[in-house]
Simulated assay, not measured.
Amino acid sequence: MLTAVAELAMEENRVYMDAAYAAGGSVEERVLRAASEYLRFARERPDEFRILANPPDEPEALERVAALTREQNATLAGIMRDAIEAGTARPDLDPDRVATTLWASLNGVIALAWRSDSLRVDEEELNAMFATFAAMVGDGVRARPS
């Protein structure tokens, strides 16, 4: 049953992410749009997001969520590959590693809003941290002039 709940959460997340990835634009615009949609999903569907960010400790559920996460991250890695080939993203970055790092980083930022200790952030700070994340992503993936 927990696996079914996790799969439903991932399918709901996929609706947000597929819409973000389908839109055109530069790699920076597409990555930031995906990040924005991921944050929107977390805000609009916090219970589902928590299941994906911290899956139930059941082997089948853990592996299914991991497989679905890898599938979503592969789409982001594909965008990075296209950008590297087009010369708009840094060729020294590994697309799969970039996708996993961005996903994990954003999970960490969003999770700060759930903490019950003094590290908890409010909506204003979460928005500011997301803006910092966006600036770092843009500067970090953009191709450097030769």
Score class of each variant (00 low, 15 high):
92 D>A: 15
135 A>N: 10
145 P>W: 09
14 R>K: 13
19 A>P: 13
107 N>K: 11
3 T>V: 15
1 M>Q: 13
35 A>H: 09
80 M>E: 02
129 M>L: 05
35 A>C: 12
114 W>D: 14
120 R>P: 14
104 A>P: 08
16 Y>L: 07
44 E>A: 14
79 I>K: 07
22 A>T: 02
65 V>G: 01
16 Y>P: 08
83 A>I: 13
28 E>N: 03
29 E>M: 07
3 T>M: 13
36 S>P: 06
100 T>C: 15
101 T>S: 07
79 I>M: 11
72 Q>W: 15
8 L>M: 07
16 Y>V: 11
9 A>I: 12
143 A>Q: 04
80 M>F: 05
74 A>W: 06
22 A>W: 03
56 P>H: 08
110 I>D: 06
137 V>D: 04
8 L>V: 05
35 A>M: 11
10 M>K: 13
28 E>C: 04
15 V>F: 03
146 S>N: 00
142 R>I: 06
47 D>M: 11
110 I>N: 08
30 R>E: 01
75 T>Q: 06
11 E>L: 13
56 P>L: 06
31 V>P: 00
98 V>I: 06
146 S>M: 04
98 V>Y: 05
14 R>A: 14
39 L>M: 12
32 L>F: 13
62 L>Y: 14
111 A>V: 12
94 D>A: 06
70 R>K: 14
87 G>D: 02
69 T>Q: 02
9 A>K: 00
15 V>I: 01
113 A>L: 06
70 R>L: 12
31 V>Y: 10
12 E>Y: 12
83 A>L: 09
3 T>F: 14
59 P>R: 01
145 P>G: 03
113 A>M: 03
108 G>K: 04
76 L>V: 09
18 D>I: 07
146 S>K: 08
98 V>S: 00
133 F>L: 13
51 I>Q: 08
139 D>H: 15
48 E>C: 12
120 R>N: 14
19 A>I: 08
66 A>M: 12
117 D>L: 04
60 E>F: 02
81 R>P: 00
138 G>E: 02
137 V>Q: 01
97 R>M: 13
116 S>H: 01
103 W>K: 01
6 A>C: 13
118 S>G: 12
79 I>N: 07
126 L>H: 10
57 D>W: 12
47 D>S: 12
23 A>S: 10
41 F>P: 03
3 T>G: 11
116 S>N: 07
44 E>M: 12
32 L>V: 02
37 E>W: 15
62 L>W: 15
89 A>M: 02
124 E>F: 11
5 V>C: 10
38 Y>C: 02
142 R>P: 07
128 A>S: 05
77 A>F: 09
30 R>S: 05
81 R>E: 06
